[in-house]
């Protein structure tokens, strides 16, 4: 059987909110390592990889590896029924085609269980090569979300350019153009407010803003976001999940032919 229990159930709610608009159906892989998922959006332009390590849960039992196919919109509907302070338990018995979500209020005076049908999903796993990135930007996640949102009102694509001056986000459209430059700023009171730019090589890449905006749904999960870029490679936008793992979004670039 498979069973996990997460006292901070709101994390799981936030994780689902972060991926449900990007991916319709996905296989969750349960193993002794943890609860993970890899899925592409329907047009295969973006990929999301989630890992919640088994050690991060208050209870985690996985007798043998299990793949659970779920419709993420339906899973999100069920998790929305959990209170923000609720403890969430996910259970699946071997050989059944359902998964059970159990929600316990902190004072244990309300216990709900929701059963959801599992699906058979044909999904292909991609091998993500380890890469040394030419530029890595760490910045406040709310700032990144703001930039993506603001540039969306100007154009459909963002050009991200890292130089020793800093990182420049540019968009252009019918009404005009916008450039937002963020400089390294490590001398802040709180580390979560810092912007750190590690650059081996200057790099400039172009991306569809629609996907970037979708990634920023993960903003409530982490104060900081890490953006890793190399020429002619998908960008990685990573949000840590409080001491448990991460959500990484990979987005293929637009390349001039």
């Amino acid at each position: 059987m498979f069973e996990l229990r997460l006292v901070q159930g709101s994390l799981l709610k936030k994780v689902l909110e972060s991926i449900k608009d990007l991916v319709n159906d996905a296989n969750f892989d349960c193993s002794s390592t943890g609860f993970s998922l890899q899925a592409m959006d329907s047009s295969h332009v973006a990929l999301v990889a989630l890992l919640l390590r088994s050690e991060g849960f208050e209870h985690y039992r996985c007798d043998r590896n299990l793949t659970m196919g779920m419709n993420l919109a339906n899973m999100a509907k069920m998790l929305k029924c959990a209170g923000n302070d609720d403890i969430i338990t996910i259970k699946a018995d071997d050989g059944t085609d359902t998964v059970t979500f159990m929600f316990e209020s902190p004072s244990q005076d309300k216990i709900s269980d929701f059963e959801m049908k599992l699906m058979d999903i044909d999904s292909e796993h991609l091998g993500i090569p380890e890469a040394e990135y030419e530029a890595i930007i760490r910045m406040p996640s709310a700032e990144f979300a703001r930039i993506c949102r603001d540039l969306s009102s100007i154009g459909d694509t963002v050009v991200i350019s890292v130089t020793k001056e800093g990182v420049r986000f540019s968009a252009r459209g019918d009404i005009g153009a916008a450039n937002i430059v963020c400089r390294q700023n490590a001398t802040v009171d709180k580390p979560e407010d810092a912007t750190i730019i590690e650059m081996q090589e200057p790099v400039t890449l172009t991306f569809a803003l629609r996907y970037m905006n979708s990634f920023t749904k993960a903003t409530p999960l982490a104060e900081q976001v890490t953006i890793s870029m190399s020429s002619d490679l998908p960008v990685v936008v990573e949000y840590k999940v409080a001491g448990m793992g991460y959500i990484r979004y990979y987005l293929a670039p637009k390349i001039e032919e």
Partner: peptide
Amino acid sequence: GPKQYTITKFFQKL
């Protein structure tokens, strides 16, 4: 304009 590539162009299927 620039062409939108897919992820499968960069990452191989396992």
